[in-house]
């Protein structure tokens, strides 16, 4: 299997901030239909990897290929339009807009200035928004201002804002942070439901949650891959145990 058969191929990726290598010669591959979880101690470079893939941070060296396209040379909005969606660590939603409007702004139709001026909210738009709202458990809250949602609901809303764009690669940075136990269960169910047909990368600390969703786990440490494989495999990897427990 050549590396181009993967949806995402990250090779020799390096970024240094004033000489500090936050990500150091990293290579990994994500397949379609795969849900990959990235774990690692604080400062391991997990969020930086997502920043590099979505173009927020520019790589010093290396390549990121998404369906054969080189992402490191593309601007942020071009990367999104190519099919990469990214959720931030703290929920980034538009608090002054309603849930409905949050989802509407995220619709791919009307992405240019003129397109946005000519955009019409027709039945098709409303149906699409309602179906995504159903998926993210917010169907009854469409007309509420996003500011009044609970923390967990805001996380779901942001996931919905990505889903409505039908991305082929979905990257979620700590999606269950601040969620109650039952909300975590629903989120795990949601992620398992949306993974088929696309690739998902999740950064998460909660090992119980990881167990529910992960197909494969990548452990990062000091910008490098420490271990990769099934959850059982990495949990029993002596190097991982060393990093997490062996101070």
């Amino acid at each position: 299997m050549s590396n181009n058969d993967f949806v995402l191929s990250v090779e020799d990726l390096t970024v240094s901030f004033d000489g500090f290598r936050a990500v150091d010669g990293l290579s990994f591959y994500v397949d379609t239909n795969e849900l990959r979880v990235v774990i690692g101690p604080n400062g391991a470079g997990k969020t930086t990897v997502l920043d590099l893939i979505c173009g927020k941070t520019k790589a010093t060296e290396g390549s990121i290929k998404f369906k054969g396209q080189e992402l490191t040379r593309m601007s942020e909005h071009e990367i999104v339009r190519a099919g990469v969606g990214r959720k931030f660590q703290t929920p980034s939603i538009y608090e002054d807009l309603t849930v409905f409007e949050n989802l509407e702004v995220s619709l791919p139709r009307g992405r240019s200035v003129l397109g946005a001026l000519a955009f019409r909210r027709d039945a098709e738009v409303v149906e699409r928004i309602e179906s995504v709202a159903e998926d993210i458990f917010l169907a009854d809250l469409l007309d509420e201002r996003a500011a009044v949602l609970s923390h967990g609901q805001k996380q779901w809303l942001e996931i919905g804002m990505l889903l409505i764009q039908s991305p082929e690669l979905l990257m979620l940075d700590e999606p269950v942070a601040g969620m109650s136990l039952s909300e975590r269960e629903k989120t795990a169910e949601l992620l398992n439901r949306i993974t088929p047909g696309r690739s998902v990368i999740v950064i998460e600390h909660d090992m119980k949650f990881v167990k529910h969703i992960a197909h494969k786990v990548t452990v990062l440490h000091q910008g490098k891959i420490l271990s990769e494989g099934s959850l059982d495999k990495v949990q029993n990897d002596p190097r991982v145990i060393e990093v997490y427990l062996g101070h």
């Binding site: 927020k56 942020e76 999104v80 990214r86 931030f88 980034s92 995220s106 992405r111 804002m161």
Partner: peptide, 8 residues
Amino acid sequence: DRVRFTGY
């Protein structure tokens, strides 16, 4: 940033 990473 959210708008930028929504493809605008």
